[in-house]
Simulated scan of single mutants.
Amino acid sequence: MPSANFKYCTFFIAAILGLFSSLAIAQQNSGLPTIELKTGIYRIQAELADTPKAREVGLMNRTTMPVNSGMLFVFEQKAGHCFWMNNTKIPLSIAFIADDGKIVNVDEMQSETTTNHCPQAPIRFALEMNKRWFSERVIVPGMIIQGLPRK
């Protein structure tokens, strides 16, 4: 039977590990506002990149992202807004979204590349998620993303 000191030591180590894990998550949190989106049966917690600076930084230098989390890029004008992955450490999928919430196209993006990924039509919204998030859930062009901000 373990001693009381062993139990307390184990608890203390677990508490310290929990604290470090919380600090790692906090370091990756950008401080951007979040919004809840929905597509089909899936709920998404998305950080809002709705300023030039937030859009420029995006998900750069992050090493992980929770499964149903992402980043929603919001632009003032509809256009062919293209994306690349320079300084982005994790591979991502991107859905280009029309004003009515319909997904125009989805693209897979490899980390640390400068390949352009562009919408097939002018858009104001783009949603980045972990790589293959959309394909693994059979979320395809024509489906609706609900909860987009109205500007």
Rank of each mutant, 00 (worst) to 15 (best):
I41P: 08
W133Q: 03
E112I: 13
N61V: 04
E76I: 04
S21D: 15
M143W: 01
N87F: 07
P149L: 01
R124V: 01
E56A: 15
E112L: 13
N105L: 08
I144Y: 05
R132F: 14
L92N: 06
Q146C: 03
F134H: 02
L17P: 11
Q110Y: 11
D99N: 14
W133T: 10
P52A: 11
T34N: 09
S22V: 10
V138L: 12
A121Q: 12
D50C: 09
H117V: 12
I103A: 00
Q146S: 12
G101C: 11
R150C: 03
K151F: 13
N130F: 02
L23G: 05
V140F: 07
R124D: 00
I41K: 15
W133D: 05
A121P: 05
L37Q: 01
L17H: 11
E108R: 07
N116V: 10
M129H: 07
P119C: 05
E56Q: 15
E47A: 09
E76D: 15
F73P: 02
K78Y: 03
Q77I: 04
I35Q: 12
A15K: 08
F73L: 06
V104Q: 08
R55G: 07
T64C: 00
G40E: 01
H117E: 06
P91L: 10
F75Y: 15
Q146G: 02
V140W: 04
G147T: 05
P66A: 13
